[in-house]
Design a protein around this nucleic acid. Sequence first.
DNA 1: TAGATTGTTAATCGATTAACAATC
DNA 2: TAGATTGTTAATCGATTAACAATC
Lengths: 232, 232
Amino acid sequence: MSQARRDTPNERLAPKAVVGRLSLYLRQLELFERQGLITVSSRRLGTVLGIGDAQVRKDLAFFGQFGYPGVGYRIEELGQALRRVMGIDHEWPLALVGLGNLGRALLKYRGFRARGFRIAALLDNDPKKIGHSHSGLVIEPIDACARVVAEHHIALAVLSVPGEAAQATADLLIAAGIVGILNFAPVTLTMPPHVNIVAVDLSIQLENLAYLVANTEPKPSATRLPEQAEGG
Amino acid sequence: MSQARRDTPNERLAPKAVVGRLSLYLRQLELFERQGLITVSSRRLGTVLGIGDAQVRKDLAFFGQFGYPGVGYRIEELGQALRRVMGIDHEWPLALVGLGNLGRALLKYRGFRARGFRIAALLDNDPKKIGHSHSGLVIEPIDACARVVAEHHIALAVLSVPGEAAQATADLLIAAGIVGILNFAPVTLTMPPHVNIVAVDLSIQLENLAYLVANTEPKPSATRLPEQAEGG
DNA sequence: TAGATTGTTAATCGATTAACAATC
DNA sequence: TAGATTGTTAATCGATTAACAATC
């Protein structure tokens, strides 16, 4: 419940790499909190995430002064501060667009809800799906997105339509006022500058993994030396 | 069917950022190929992906000399070369571990198959699920992973178990010979150095999007100037 | 040939790591 | 106090961009 102490918000947008790590820090802080810890040092926080202590401090310092020299960071306070700088100190209603296999799985995915993201509307263009209910929500036609977005004050959309439909659907969503899209379609979308997109291309991730595996030394011996691996 | 011309494989592992873009290049090349194009310049390839022409050339040059001055890149030839350097010029059998909502959606996801990844085995620890068939495959207990991995020559696993089970399950998979994991569990896994991991954390991606949206200027006017957005 | 475009070198930019005075 | 740890500056490292001779 304490307030952040010396919050010196930075004018610039944080580097993408920093923001990605912020989410990792927050997740780990919440874990530490459940374990009953009160404070944590940059070294300890970094170690469990495979990140150097200097980098942890630098990342956090970008947004303000949250630590106490000689003590470390107060976990609850830092967690609150990070939620605020990340813009997730309040709920975000989402539109889920495209209710194929992946879309329906995302609808039931509990990780979103746990992080303050609430799916508030379902959109699909398949006449066989429109009108059906999933998890208490009725699927509406994509044409209705302007009304739906306004009604529920939705800013973010999760796009899980087929690749062929992705750009046209995104255009409709943007016209309806959507300003952020989490794109699961395997397509590079073209956007006006005020709209943000984060692409999650599962095949590309798997390809990157294949490359790494194809170019990594095999296990050198029976000895194993645990080491950290990263992700976004 | 042509061979790459002057392939000068680089000893070093390519930077992560380069590998990520390689997948984008390949996807776009395949699109161009379907559109009937024969050659493409670095400028054109870059433009549609929102990447500079110098960067496209530099990325490709890391792996060899694939272009023709004055002409550009032969699309089919470059595509083949990229598939080879990425290690996806052959099929990869996968183990899908964890058949919750997300796991079942991934099983039906067609993007994997289209890219040479074939789910060859299903593993889950829920007694209610073991023995049931999905898409022609029988769910086996995770304890059986050593046998299953050996039988199907599986190197890569897709891990979609709950966060609490992720590390223990990953340890079993590694002991069974798995050397690459696509991790959907919201947990930072600890790995021996010969094992690669790519983390796909959907909540983190959505958090990054929320940050961007919360810190982006709103639409300045009615004029729109389309611009490229990126993703991995 | 003239025009286009590569591969590569040099210049710039940004991100990570190391070091340390200041603080508790 | 002595020990721990921060925030920040300087040093290093890596990645991107610009420029251009070489090539077709």
